[in-house]
Design a protein around this nucleic acid. Structure first.
Lengths: 350, 350
DNA sequence: CTGTTAGCGCCTTCAA
DNA sequence: TTGAAGGCGCTAACAG
């Protein structure tokens, strides 16, 4: 819209400064009912839309929060972003989404951009454990909230899901079905989530009095279906596991594929569990038993936390929110069978 | 960074205006080698990062392009965005991604935001055929390029893929396998892609001398797996089709699921074809025969087109780019069988 | 080639 | 409660 603050002021017969006060939530109370009304209707009449650059330049705040995402292709990020966006928008903030494609160079470039744009805060989903500069490169730009991945620095706020609980739920479920040789495929130790999962796995196994054979824990360094396949091949060859837990649903699709190509029936011979509950998890065959995480809520929570911090820069109190998770049992898990019945395939309906 | 242009200028012993000229690509040639060098090293020394708001305010350009996406959950958008981002970034532009969640109210809210932020241009992926105000609500904000969905207004630039070719490739493939009763599930007619697909379907069928029974064309109004399932149920009950073409891979996952639940083997009894070639298409069972579209390139092309327009606002010549597609044959399609062998299931390896 | 002079549109003291 | 004045940091004419 072409109309400027000055035009609105003129039409309302007030000084631009007054119009500004009337137009802005936080200063509205400094203005009389009458002029407030006049200014508002003038603004509406002229279809006035403030120039956010001028606003930002004058007020030294961009009303923008940057969101750093490692790979937008992963469906959970869309949910996260939705949650962030909803609360940010309601508070008058916009989100600047940055997909680093898990590439450090791209991240740096984008970060410079975010800095040039003077983002007020950052929500980061890509911090990695043991990173040379920690998350210093982010915190230099703006206050940050870690999302989905815990940071090493306990003073940094974070929103994560309860990975240990997730693992416990899975293992309770599998043990309940009679499994004891339970394998798990985990992401690289640079991801805090991977660490927490292993921790949860070990704890839960112990609680059930089950030995933890380290061969049952396979680490992959790229979180994709292909690595899920090779890890599965390894597990099938080197162990006699009766259940495999994938690091996330995508990895687990690779597990299912590898098992099928090897003629190993899921769940009759090997039960399989995913993680995340992406939309396609229910569509593949067999429908995946998996852990559901409320990513929308996680995003919303992260945004709330960041806005809190921005609203009161004084108390950077460490805040750590851990959302619960739940197990969604579908058809990729079933009772463990004695070893000798391996390779005896059965089909539903036969 | 705290340093301002003035600081750089002072350190380099030049006037701020000169520093500005040296710092900006397009005006760099107006400056002597010597001062250029001095300014650059001063900038580096101070770790100078221009304040993009001040820049935008003064130059009346935001160096931002807005990207409107209907549903970020759909994997193809991530690719599209990657392409857009790569060329935009290289040209000094940032992208402001907006996920409308296919909700008109959200779209309007976001659009207002983009307008307040004075985006220089818009890439729109959500235009719908027969929309009350066409794409006027977008064009009022900034120059636009339509991506993925053709606009009704031929004067608007667009980047689409060759849907008719895609359908032809599919049908050639299926006919080559002996199919003649080929069904297709298409999206609502508000989507230009749906229209083009039906057109391609009819044309290709005719070219093969095949009758087009309208029952074979099923329209769904939401593009998701659930609607793919119900459409499949209908097709299976009301027609004796031997092949089903889904509107996209997600819909097609629904097709596969429905067939399986009905005990109909794919591909032995019914061949199935998807569209888009999302990463999971190769992971489901059976691996999906589908049409691959280079979404990254589409995004890149749309961005180039928009930048062209922004660079030379004079010639808003209509540009329409149609990218080719290719068929990826996997295992969800096989030779058609005579009707009487229906329900005789077979398993690989038996 | 470089300095000067004006703003871009808004917010924010400070007085009144 | 409102007006006046100044400036956020930068670019864009226009001189020289």
């Amino acid at each position: 819209m072409r109309a400027r603050l000055e035009d609105v002021a003129k039409l309302a017969n007030v000084h631009p400064a007054t119009a500004s006060r009337a137009l802005n939530e936080h200063s509205r109370k400094l203005v009389s009912q009458d002029t407030l009304h006049r200014v508002m209707s003038a603004a509406e009449q002229l279809n006035y839309l403030p120039n956010s650059m001028a606003r930002s330049l004058a007020s030294a705040r961009s009303f923008t929060i940057g969101v750093i995402v490692g790979d937008l292709t992963v469906p959970v990020f869309a949910q996260l972003l939705r949650g962030i966006d909803d609360v940010a928008l309601a508070a008058g903030y916009s989100t600047l989404i940055v997909d680093t494609n898990n590439n450090r160079q791209r991240e740096l470039t984008h970060l410079r951009n975010l800095e040039a744009r003077r983002v007020d805060g950052l929500i980061v989903t890509t911090s990695t454990v043991g990173d040379p500069d920690g998350s210093a490169r982010f915190t230099k730009v703006a206050p940050i909230v870690n999302l989905l991945r815990a940071s090493e620095d306990p003073s940094e706020p974070e929103v994560i899901s309860n990975d240990e609980l997730g693992m416990r739920l899975i293992i309770d479920h599998l043990v309940g079905l009679g499994h004891s040789r339970i394998a798990t495929i985990v992401g690289p130790p640079t991801i805090s989530t991977a660490l927490a999962r292993v921790r949860g796995y070990r704890t839960a196994m112990h609680e059930h009095g089950l030995a933890v054979d380290d061969n049952l824990i396979t680490t992959i360094d790229h979180i994709d279906a292909e690595h899920g396949r090779t890890a599965t091949a390894q597990l099938v060859q080197n162990t006699n596991c009766t259940a495999i837990i994938g690091f996330n649903d995508l990895v687990t699709f690779g597990v299912l594929k590898e098992l099928r190509e090897r003629g190993i029936d899921c769940p009759d011979e090997i039960s399989v569990v995913g993680y995340s509950d992406v939309p396609t998890a229910a569509l593949v065959y067999p429908p995946l038993t998996t852990v559901a995480v409320d990513h929308y809520e996680m995003g919303a929570e992260a945004a709330r936390m960041l806005l809190d911090i921005l609203g009161d820069p004084g108390r950077h109190v460490a805040r750590s929110v851990q959302l619960p998770v739940e197990l969604v049992v579908r058809e990729s898990t079933s009772a463990a069978r004695p070893a000798q019945s391996k390779r005896v395939r059965r089909r539903a309906g036969d």
